[in-house]
Design a protein around this nucleic acid. Structure first.
Lengths: 330, 330
DNA sequence: TTGTACGCGTTATCAC
DNA sequence: GTGATAACGCGTACAA
């Protein structure tokens, strides 16, 4: 094992340079020699050493990816989108998962730097000053998914969360919901926390409802926290419309409502965010704001490819979304 | 940007060799010089170029992973397990998805060879002669998950599918099921197809039931195919016990039974394979054979690590499983 | 059109 | 304990 370009050259009776030219289709090579080389290439199954090539060209054709957790189907879809688009562009994917732990994320930046990846796609709930510093030092094209962050060399890919939450809330109101409540995410999470809350409030005010009359409870994006938040809400007020900052919390809320014997959507309408596989098949099925994570992954890779090809590119890329109406709303 | 070991050496007033010794903690270095180097290392945020290192040492600390599809939560969990265990061992994960397409899989072997990964973890439904050839050529430690394949240099990690199906069927019989049927996978899939079918049949015979009296239908592991298979089964006979070769087909079957107004588990008991997240929360919840995919991923990496450390290691590694009894059986 | 020689950044080896 | 040097495999400038 372990043939190198010199071995191939010897076998084909040419110089290593010629073999290289044949492989990379650069420069002219006499047809006859070319065929000889191609024959040897096929027979030996020779593959150039990407390490040596990367060392020389300062380019690895690999992108580093950081996601919080693959157990979450959304991120799994996201990675799938990245992987498929990467394949189309001849890129490899070096995958890491962070559990949203900042220290892990930073250590992955280091790893990616060592491995000399050509770019990094980052998805996490928070982007700190520490992240920014590392990014500054690393000098690697950097794509952030799911957060907005102002930085001249950062590309952000995200949906307009405020607008989406606004529209979802509007929908609830249009279907007769009068006593509204929201199960929010933590507000330090600007996109899924603050922006969605902000859009909710905007629609509330526009609907002629006083912000004092809405019930707000906070969860941590898990099913359990949604269940408990719904409990706290009902203890305060008999609401008839609930917006949850993600589907898991919405599903937890539904479970509590069902446990309490409430009718959905007749007594309470509920709407989530993201569109999980579970949301579709749950009983009742969940109305939600659908974000296409698969497409998001592809768009991130495309943005990266455009970037390294010096194509003009927006620093903030807006992702499409859509309201999906199912059984949990009228 | 782009400091190299020589730059560090100059800044610290030592030779590159000494810097290398400090970084890798190999050989003795005078304490004073060591501190000087560490200081510069910290200040500059220097990270050694893994390409150069890999080129020299012929070792990349990266494992290549091939899975069919990340949309399937099982494989997402599997990859998560791989990733977490890889992290513990200082390994990177180069991830690819194949959609079970043999040509894709082969092309990933090539990719991994170019990238000089230290090992490959492969999960796919089929392992052909073509795979074997490539494997033979590549000479890279190779772990196969979910299939048995006899080859002296192959490590296989899998559950005993026949035994598991046997036990699941026994359970159905013990709970009073008399008219049994199975929604099988394709039989060319030896593990999830043939072996599970074989275990089912063994339990049937042992239960004193004639194989002629059981109804067999085949699906392709999707929810839809399970739905349709259940329809065909009921058209043939009023069964009261169903084993499906995976959870998705079992869920499809349940959906059909519910649509037909059948009572589960009173009229029909049903059991699946794998244990999806959905199986737990579906209504009724699904009894199933639980395979811990996360743990399976970790075990694959451990097997790889043991292998390259020349520890004695089984070529066939048996994974644990357990019967999880929920609402779809008595 | 083709071949020789150098350099990418690192570590192991060998002198000192 | 330390530094100079060779070598890993490749692409390319330059010479032929």
């Amino acid at each position: 094992m372990g043939l190198n370009i010199k071995d191939i050259a010897k076998l084909a009776g040419v110089s290593p340079a010629t073999v290289s030219r044949v492989i990379n289709e650069t420069g002219n090579v006499a047809e006859e020699k070319k065929q000889r080389v191609l024959k040897v290439l096929k027979e030996t199954g020779y593959k150039p050493n990407a390490l040596a090539r990367g060392l020389l060209l300062n380019k690895t054709n690999v992108i580093g990816v950081i996601v919080p957790d693959l157990s979450n189907i959304n991120f799994a879809e996201f990675v799938k989108g990245i992987e498929n688009e990467a394949k189309l562009n001849g890129l490899g994917v070096l995958l890491t998962t962070s559990e949203n732990d900042t220290d892990s994320e930073i250590s992955y930046f280091q790893l990616f730097k060592e491995k000399r990846v050509d770019g990094i796609i980052f998805s996490g709930t928070i982007f700190t000053e520490k992240h920014r510093e590392e990014l500054e030092k690393a000098d690697i094209p950097f794509i952030v998914f799911g957060q907005w962050f102002e930085h001249y060399k950062l590309i952000c890919v995200n949906i307009d969360n405020e607008k989406a939450a606004y529209e979802a809330t509007k929908y609830l109101i249009s279907k007769g919901a009068k006593n509204l409540s929201m199960i929010m995410g933590p507000l330090w999470d600007r996109s899924a926390g603050y922006d969605r809350y902000s859009g909710f409030l905007k629609a509330v005010v526009e609907g002629g409802i006083s912000p004092k009359d809405v019930v707000l409870e906070e969860g941590d994006f898990t099913i359990k926290s949604g269940y408990r938040a719904m409990k706290r809400i009902l203890e305060k007020k008999n609401v008839d419309g609930v917006l949850a900052a993600n589907d898991f919390m919405a599903l937890g809320a539904i479970k509590y409502l069902v446990d309490m014997g409430m009718m959905i959507p007749d007594e309470v309408q509920i709407m989530g965010f993201d569109d999980n596989m579970i949301s579709e098949i749950y009983n009742p099925s969940l109305s939600t704001v659908k974000i296409n994570f698969y497409e998001a992954g592809r768009i991130c890779v495309k943005a990266f490819v455009d970037r390294i090809n010096n194509k003009p590119i927006e620093n903030n890329i807006l992702l499409p979304y859509e309201l999906v109406i199912r059984g949990s709303t009228k």
